[in-house]
Amino acid sequence: MATLALKQIRKTYRNAEIETLKGIDISIDSGEFLILVGPSGCGKSTLMNTIAGLENISSGEILIDGVDVAQVEPKDRDIAMVFQSYALYPNMTVRDNIAFGLKIRKLDKARIAQEVDRVAAMLQIDHLLDRKPAQLSGGQRQRVAMGRALARQPKLYLFDEPLSNLDAKLRVEMRTQIKRLHQQLGTTIVYVTHDQIEAMTLADRIAVMKDGELQQLGTPKEIYNQPNNMFVAGFMGSPSMNFIQAKVELDAQNKPVASVTVAGEPHLLALPAALRERDGQSIVIGLRPENITEQLVEGEGCTTLPLTVDVLEPTGPDTIAMVTMNGQEVACRISPDYEAKVGETMPFHIDLSKAVFFDAQSQQRII
C-alpha cells in the first residue's frame, strides 16, 4: 500500500473568483483509513477528484509514496475509485465488470480469472458472477463496484459516498463489510461521506472540512472529545453537542463559575480553574447529551439541576430527553428503563469534567 500527502492543495474556478479548496494539508500513512467529512459544498468531493486526477489542482502537491502525481494522468496514478453511482457497465456480467480493469491492463486470462474469483469470494458475490447489474440489488451492485476496485490491487483506494444510495439496513451491513475488508487487506483508503456515523465507525482518522478549509484532522475519539471549534463539535455526534451560552464570574473563593437559568431560577456551575483569567468574558459550554443524564455522576465538576422534560425521543438503546436551559433547547441522554414523563421536573446530573469550552466570539476551543 501507499502513503499519500496533500500539500497546500488549492482549487479555483472562474478565473480565480471562486476558491473551492483553500490550502489543504493532509498526510496519510500506508494502510490508513482516512475519511473526509463535512456538509454539502464543503469541498470534500472536489478534493477526492483532485487525488484521482479527475480535476486539476490550481496549486500544491499530491504525493503518492513521495512522488508528485499532480500532473500525472488518472490512469497512471495507480488509484482505484468506487463511485456513489456504482458506474457498472449494464451490458456486462458481474464477472466482466470486475475483470474490466484487468483486461485493460492486458493481464493473462488465467490471472484475470484468479483475481475475479478471489474478490468475488471475499465479497460473497461468487454466485452472482453470470448476472448483469439490472438483476442485482443496490447492495449487490455496490459490492460489484468494490470488487472491480479490489481486483486491480492499486496503491490507493478512493470511495466517493459509496453507501448514500442504500437503505439504512444495507448501509450498516456495507459499513461492516468495508471495515472487515480494510482489516483483512490493510489497504490505504480515502473515503468521502457526509454521514458522521460512517466517519466515526470506519475511520482511523477523520478530516473535517468546511467551506474548502480543513477544520480538524484527528482520530474519531479526538474529533468527538476535543473538537477544535464549535463547527466540528456540532457536526460530529448525534444528537449534536449542546452549546450553552454563559459568562465567567468569580465567586467569593475566587473560583470561576457560570450562572445558568432553569425555570427562571439561576444556578451556578463550577468551571475549571483555567477559566479564571476569563473573568467577565462570554464563553460557550459544550456538553454532549450523554454528559447530561439521570444517572448520578460522582467526582469534581459534577452538578445536579432540576430540569423539566419537554420532549422524549426513544431510540431503543437510550432515550433522548429535550429540556430547557438558559432559554434554549438542550438534549440529554437517559436510560430507556427510566420512567421519565413529558412535563415532569426531574434531577439531571451534569458531568462538567467532560465539557468543552469555547470562546464565544471566535468559536475556537479554549480548553
Rank of each mutant, 00 (worst) to 15 (best):
Thr187Asn: 14
Ile64Ala: 10
Glu61Gln: 15
Asn49Gly: 02
Ser335Lys: 11
Tyr86Pro: 08
Ile223Tyr: 07
Asp29Phe: 04
Arg148Val: 04
Ile178Lys: 06
Arg333Ser: 14
Cys42His: 11
Ser45Tyr: 11
Asp65Trp: 11
Ala70Thr: 05
Ala70Lys: 03
Glu222Asn: 12
Met230Trp: 04
Leu170Cys: 04
Ile35Gly: 03
Gly186His: 08
Ile35Asp: 01
Gly286Asn: 01
Thr12Gln: 15
Gln215Ser: 08
Ile334Thr: 06
Ala355Phe: 01
Asp78Thr: 00
Pro336Arg: 05
Leu150Pro: 03
Gly147Cys: 10
Asp160Glu: 03
Glu344Asp: 14
Thr20Gly: 02
Thr187Leu: 13
Arg14Pro: 00
Thr187Glu: 03
Met241Pro: 05
Phe235Tyr: 13
Asp359Thr: 00
Gln226Asn: 01
Pro306Glu: 10
Gly343Trp: 09
Gly60Leu: 09
Gln364Lys: 11
Tyr157Glu: 00
Ala120Pro: 00
Arg95His: 14
Pro266Ile: 05
Ala274Ile: 14
Glu329Lys: 15
Asn15Gln: 13
Leu296Lys: 15
Ala99Phe: 11
Ile28Val: 15
Met200Leu: 15
Ala252Glu: 15
Ile292Gly: 10
Pro239Glu: 07
Lys179His: 12
Leu307Gln: 10
Pro272Tyr: 11
Asn326Lys: 00
Leu150Met: 13
Ala134Cys: 02
Ile51Lys: 05
Cys332Tyr: 07
Asp25Met: 12
Ala207Thr: 10
Leu129Tyr: 09
Gly66Glu: 11
Gln281Met: 07
Ala252Ser: 14
Arg10Val: 09
Ala87Val: 06
Glu277Asp: 13
Phe235Ser: 08
